[in-house]
Write a protein that binds this DNA or RNA. Structure first.
Lengths: 345, 345
DNA sequence: ACGGCTCGCGAGAGCGCTCTCACCCCACGG
DNA sequence: CCGTGGGGTGAGAGCGCTCTCGCGAGCCGT
């Protein structure tokens, strides 16, 4: 736990290179309009002294921070139960790093945290925000929008219908669900059930819509509402079995619930996929590949979602790749999903 | 994507309250030595104007940032395969938030990233660092130590033997392993095998040591080296079955491998725990509770580890709870583990 | 050959804050 | 009554950087 040594300033570098501060500054920031001879001398001085620009001083005048906040609202522990979040974060990190931006992580839990986050963002400490909010009634998105910070959302926010200036990145939950159900239908299944996720989350609602797209006038008894947890999946499967013993396929809104359903089916003596075919969603490998049989599921490219969020935000900030729709307010993106066939359907 | 409005400065608040900048500053930062009348007036002006201090300007003079870097070195994707990291992060976040520090996340991948991180830390943008590094030969810890930034490590770094000024937080891998193996022995098992993790990670090495503590002069054939992955666990279990068909218990260095082992055991016709008892490590719920039978495993309080790391670091920075060993260079902490009994042993 | 031009560089102001220091005013002791 | 002290307050100097501006030196055109 050593103390930091006094660091060299621009001034020091200037003195050593025999030029003015302004010139050093120019070289450090791209170096246009400086003769090569001088630029070289400055660069030499810079690394002889081990000069690193003081970001605080720089921000003070530029009003830029080259930092992006990532806000994760997780009233429940759910976000942390799966690698989802970590993967998105990784995608985000890669993209930010590529553009020399820092990632400031804001994890929230409960109401007072909302206020804190709002204050932080409004405080202008970061140039933009990437926000993950799961629930329809979450006040956070509104709060952030009001803070006036450029923002991109992860997953479609519940109220995006009213406000068209909301930018988000989502995967094609509805389309993916359709693919899953169609696949089951293609297998000749006719009594296809659906175990929903927590319906106060748009992803769950969209997946349900996708199911309905294919199962027009589906028997309502074939739809069991659950909550994305394995236990919820078990409970829902039991219900389903109780009221529709003739069910021959199940599309669960995520892999965790599918794994629960699988367990219940086995208990009840059904064979998978022989008697009942099962499809999940997410392609959470540690779960999907550990079940017996392995889970057929809908994959989304989670890391890419993260990367895209960051790219969209930076682009909106007039950073990011130049000459590529610079400055144009970016619009939302919905990423495609793919069906991964394994043993369960 | 609105642009940020011009924010009020200290000056503006001072003018409105009819006092000097200095007085406003005093009030904003604790407000000692200011008459209540004035302080009140200042506070009123502050929230009428919605004043938020400019952190950059403040840092420029105080040389504090109230920001901590969290560095996650993950050459492999492993860190992201389990919720481990997310939970630690959450613990860290809670503690930092409680002390008004920001969390700057640095994810690294490969050599060039190391240089980047080194530069960033040496650049004095943060007050300290929390570092997760998995592998013995990782150059990152050295690099960081050299950057002169106060640091606390997550998990015992490989070379901590030589340098006593290294502070880390780890769980009691060795003790936990001992408990697991003793439990198996207590069940009357005598041919207890061990599937190791990647032995270039201290956690794997320590768990192996714990196994050996109990199984003094264990049959070397009972030890199969693997890599913390499910596939590795399967392979190792097959080996084990091949060379020691009489094996009656397995302690796997993590849950993922245990789940792989379980699958192989089932294939081979062994019953668990009847014929072979199995214990994992980590208590990764999504895995441990999804296996059949559910996994008996060694739990570590991951979130608490994170919280502790942050607390240790802040304390070393003379922040954190006052009157509690202030300024004393903190020393490493090893957290206890507990055995969680489920179906597999 | 001369006026204008561009280009490269340095001087200097100022970003918003903290913190030292000097000042003022009032209470008190001699 | 004046001197002394101390607490409350304001003036002002920076923190390290960027960026505008102006100046001098070379280049072109006519």
């Amino acid at each position: 736990m050593t103390d930091t040594a006094p660091r060299p300033t621009l001034e020091a570098v200037a003195a050593r290179a025999g030029v003015s501060r302004a010139t050093v500054s120019r070289v450090v920031n791209g170096g246009d309009g400086v003769r090569d001879i001088l630029a070289e001398r400055v660069r030499k001085a810079v690394d002889e002294l081990g000069y690193v620009p003081n970001q605080a001083a720089r921000s003070l005048v530029t009003r830029r921070h080259d930092a992006i906040a990532v806000v994760v609202a997780e009233p429940e522990t759910r976000v942390f139960a799966d690698p989802f979040f970590a993967l998105q974060l990784r995608g985000i990190s890669k993209e930010l790093t590529a553009h020399d931006n820092q990632l400031v992580l804001l994890l929230t839990e409960g109401r007072d945290d909302h206020a804190r986050v709002g204050r932080y963002l409004a405080g202008g400490h970061v140039d933009g925000a990437l926000v993950f909010s799961l629930h329809l009634d979450d006040p956070l998105p509104e709060l952030i929008q009001r803070a006036g910070v450029p923002t991109v959302f992860g997953g479609r926010p519940g109220w995006s219908g009213d406000r068209r200036d909301v930018v988000y990145v989502d995967s094609d939950n509805r389309g993916g669900a359709r693919d899953a159900v169609r696949h089951l239908a293609g297998l000749g299944r006719t009594r296809i059930a659906h175990i929903t996720g927590a319906l106060d989350q748009t992803s769950a609602a969209d997946r349900l819509d996708g199911y309905r797209d294919v199962m027009v006038d589906a028997d309502p008894l074939l739809i069991a509402e659950a909550d994305f947890t394995p236990a919820g999946g078990e409970r829902a499967m039991r219900e389903l079995l109780g009221r529709c013993p003739d069910v021959d396929a199940v599309f669960a809104a995520n892999d965790l619930m599918a794994s629960g359903a699988l367990r219940v089916l086995r208990e009840s003596g059904r064979r998978v996929p022989g008697d009942v075919a099962v499809i999940g969603f997410d392609d959470m490998r540690p779960v999907a590949e550990q079940t017996d049989p392995q889970l057929t599921t809908v994959r989304q490219d989670i890391e890419e979602m993260g990367r895209l969020m960051a790219r969209l935000l930076l682009r909106g900030l007039d950073r990011g790749a130049p000459r590529e729709g610079v400055g144009a307010t970016p619009s939302s993106v919905v990423l495609p999903t793919t069906l991964v066939r394994r043993g369960s359907a």
